[in-house]
């Protein structure tokens, strides 16, 4: 179901409670009574059209590709992506870590299996961190520089130099499927791990992994289907402008 301006914000959460993390990233707090999406966004000072695109894309994986998201500024999109990074490292990953830690503590036999799991996730955490760091220090600043150059009337040679050393195509090539290991981890727990006596924690861990995975898939989708095509178009225009100048 498509989420629109006039739906109650409360119903958005009832529809799919994973949207809680999207709300959180927009700084929208609970307790909005029967206010609609548009009303809540206005109070919280959130661009309602942008919110709608993001939340719809999150809920319905087939919502992409849509032209609307292309019209928002790169800055707005990368700001949102940055917030999702923050979410992973400050909330979702620590939660998973502490759940694994609890499982290790509560376990007396075959502890080595869980230690293995813990190490696997630790490696993954490092990989995720490298991935998001690279995006924040290299990719996002690049996309913003391209947008600035695209919008400005004058041709700045420094952008041309920048484009010589990096391009969105490079990002596309190196953009690995960061969610694959999470997929593996889920399957290992569901299918193969000898179940500890206390299965409650194990279930909690799975919920947390599913949630992180969905978030990361959504995040990559925004990058691959919105950010990359947008920047690629801008790069073309800028290259053409330089060509005309010469």
């Amino acid at each position: 179901m498509l989420i629109t301006k006039n739906i109650k914000m409360a119903d958005v959460i009832h529809m799919n409670y994973f949207t809680l993390s999207v709300l959180n990233r927009f700084g929208i707090e609970l307790g909005f009574g029967d206010k609609t999406v548009a009303e809540v966004c206005k109070i919280e000072n959130v661009d309602v059209d942008f919110f709608l695109e993001i939340v719809n894309a999150f809920v319905d994986k087939d919502y992409f590709p849509k032209k609307q998201l292309q019209t928002f500024s790169v800055k707005l999109i990368t700001d949102y992506l940055r917030k999702t990074h923050y979410d992973y490292h400050q909330i979702k990953v620590p939660e998973i870590e502490s759940l694994i830690e609890e499982m290790v503590k509560a376990c007396y036999s075959e502890k080595e299996n869980l230690v293995l799991l813990k190490k696997f996730f630790n490696d993954y955490k490092q990989e995720l961190l490298n991935h998001t760091n690279r995006e924040e220090t290299v990719v996002f600043p690049y996309t913003i520089a391209i947008e600035d150059a695209f919008n400005s009337k004058t041709l700045d040679n420094s952008v041309f130099d920048l484009m010589e050393t990096y391009s969105i195509a490079i990002f596309q090539n190196e953009h690995e499927n960061i969610e694959e290991k999470l997929f593996d981890l889920k399957n290992i727990i569901i299918k193969y791990l000898p179940q500890p006596k206390n299965s409650e924690n194990c279930h909690k861990l799975l919920y947390a992994l599913f949630s992180l995975e969905q978030d990361i898939i959504d995040h990559s989708r925004i990058e691959d289907k919105v950010l990359v095509p947008k920047i690629r178009e801008m790069e073309k225009v800028i290259t053409k402008r330089f060509g005309e100048k010469k």
Binding site: L117, F120, K181, D184, L185, N187
Partner: peptide, 11 residues
């Protein structure tokens, strides 16, 4: 197996 990565297969 439903496992894609090398570390996953190792486990």
């Amino acid at each position: 197996l439903g496992i894609k990565t090398v570390p996953g297969l190792t486990i």
